[in-house]
Design a protein around this nucleic acid. Structure first.
Lengths: 210, 210, 210, 210
DNA sequence: GTCTAATCGAGACGGTACGTCTCGTCTTCAC
DNA sequence: GTGAAGACGAGACGTACCGTCTCGATTAGAC
């Protein structure tokens, strides 16, 4: 979100309800039309707002869609299910459920694609979508360490690398399963995936004697 | 590719060189402009071809970009490096190298995003890009089984599920690392990733004694 | 003309100067290119206006050309030259002078040809070009009746028929001379034509004894 | 027409039936589509002929339409009806009947309009359409002179001027009536027109008493 | 209560690309 | 050499959105 009524300012204040309406209209349009056929004029009409209003608040289609999609990920949580495996399965299922929604499918990959040529956009995605997911990984690891399921990390740099790797593997696998393979990331799949992931992370390195 | 001079046909035959020129021009435009600013008129101009010629051979921007990007993956191979780990590392590095190229970055995710609303497009992607990659996974497993690094698969259905899972994990992780996290999938990362993957696939299930 | 800023309306008002510029550009293009090679894109460029602006105000090439040509006929007048013959000669010469201009030559017949398949276009031509000319005929007859050169009309229906006939003969002859025969309707010709016309209209019917 | 099978030539001779089929197809297309929407590709298809064949025989749309329309005027004749007035009425009615046909309406004015910028086209129209009509005027005058209805012409130059004038007045009036005024040149109208024309041509100049 | 200034809706504006159409030419094979 | 078939380069078509602009009408807080 970027609209702030800058407190000590004169003039007519912005209509706060408009932001909500615009983001909802954007998601609606994503569902009906997909990213490439979504037009800002159409979003403005759906939101009952003038095009000018929309452009006053967002720089363009990409920024708008990032904000609209980011709200979908607000509901991601990490309820304590008693074991690391169950925690992972739970959060991956939540993540898969969000990705299965057409507004996420249509919008997310498109803005990621756009972000390969627009650093500001990549940063916006990182801050409003990715950051939250990374935090869930950190939180989950901490909880597992409390439980004793994972050893404490001696080397902070190595720890950060591992978190990154886990995040890329989890998010990447779910996204690929959903969007490229076109198959649902359902409970069976998530269970299998989690088993491989956890084994990979916790199994002892095979010794030379194998 | 879709242009065939249908053998026993009258009329002037299509210029075969045009296909090549158009696909190369498409990749060039992807590098310079990215997917969203790429226009078919511009591609036609770059290829030294009329817009009509382009539309006669491809249905639209998405199909054209899929074919142009697919050619990038033709170079993927699976040389025998002596061990399963080395084989995986090799092919993942190749895959990462292709994904690091701007024409792949710009184009691939965009068409995947589009394919969420276009089944024909998804199928085209599957046939011309994904299929080849799946085959590499199968080939690698077979080779590892010959070497005795992997046990033979008793249950074919389970085997297929595992291949799918591996494929989603590998491709997903590399793509996510490259495009979302925006960091290079370099040798270090690939080595770490391969270690986790192989452990996850081969480690014994933790026994009850855990 | 069709563009009016409808008085009590919201939104940015139309640029009135654009109409003038577009019609002038249309005549310029008619002179240089002729009707069939005139393109609306070119007219827009000449007028320093976007193609959209042009399409927002005119339905198509035909309507635009009718309006552009109609303005040429605005200068037609019926100055009092003292006699019916002189009045006719004067107005016919004016008419011929307009028709001799290349923008009229190129445009007028073309839209008439188009109007054979488009009733709305025929009506537009009638209202903006023909109507004014008919009025001149009426005006001239009235003046001649005041002078006593023509008898008052007893039968209104017959009078209307005669006006129509005169109009078709005058306009038709000048147009045919100019466009089909390709010869100038100069003073000599106009004098000869007027003599025949006036004699035809005023001479006594040859009696049976002939 | 311009296609000749050049007598002493080798190779496959041209298909003579094609000319006929093409001209008929052109008239059919003129009726259905009008001049501006008529395309040579469509005419070729209707005639069951390749576009190449058509272009080998005609230089373009204008030339083709002139030839197609010219054939309509082949049926104009000047049967002897016993008096100059009746002869004129007869031939004017024939002319009006041809002009009333949609293929003539659509095509004739359009090519005349085009001819204002193409001298070769104007000459082609003159030779294949106008010439024949002029000859009818000459023939009619000769017949009337034989009958004693018209005096012999003392001055050949003046005679030529008068023929031109008559032709412009007759053809122009009928065309204007039919295409611009959009009313039929029926028997009533033709009778009125002929009366005015003949009076104009034969009435004695008003004397000095004027 | 003005005054002031940013907001709102509406919609016209100069652009750009779209995907289609027709042009007139060219290339191939069959007769 | 002619003919049908159809691909080709060229370029106009009319439409759709873009992002900007100009309006008149609100709508607050500052005076």
């Amino acid at each position: 979100m970027q609209s702030r009524t800058p407190a000590g300012r004169t003039g007519r204040p912005r209509n706060a309800a408009a932001d909500t309406a615009i983001l909802a209209a954007t998601r609606e349009a994503l569902v009906e039309l997909g990213w490439s056929k979504l037009t800002l004029g159409d979003v403005a009409t759906r939101a009952g707002v003038a095009k000018t209003t929309l452009y006053r608040r967002w720089a363009g289609k990409n920024e708008l869609v990032v904000d609209a999609v980011a709200e979908l990920f607000d509901e991601l949580e990490l309820p304590d299910r008693g074991s690391l495996a169950a925690d992972i399965e739970g959060v991956v299922l939540q993540f898969a459920a969000i990705l299965a929604r057409p507004e996420a499918k249509s919008g997310l990959m498109a803005v990621v694609a756009e972000s390969t040529r627009d650093d500001a956009l990549r940063e916006r995605i990182r801050a409003s979508i990715v950051e939250r997911q990374i935090r869930l990984v950190l939180e989950g690891r901490e909880r597992a360490q409390c439980r004793g399921e994972l050893p404490p990390e001696p080397d902070p740099a190595e720890a950060a690398r591992t978190v990154d790797l886990i995040f890329d593997v989890v998010a990447g696998a779910v996204v690929h399963r959903t969007l490229v393979s076109g198959k649902p990331a359902d409970e069976d799949w998530v269970r299998g995936f989690t088993r491989v992931l956890l084994l990979g992370l916790t199994a002892a390195e095979p010794t030379a004697a194998e």
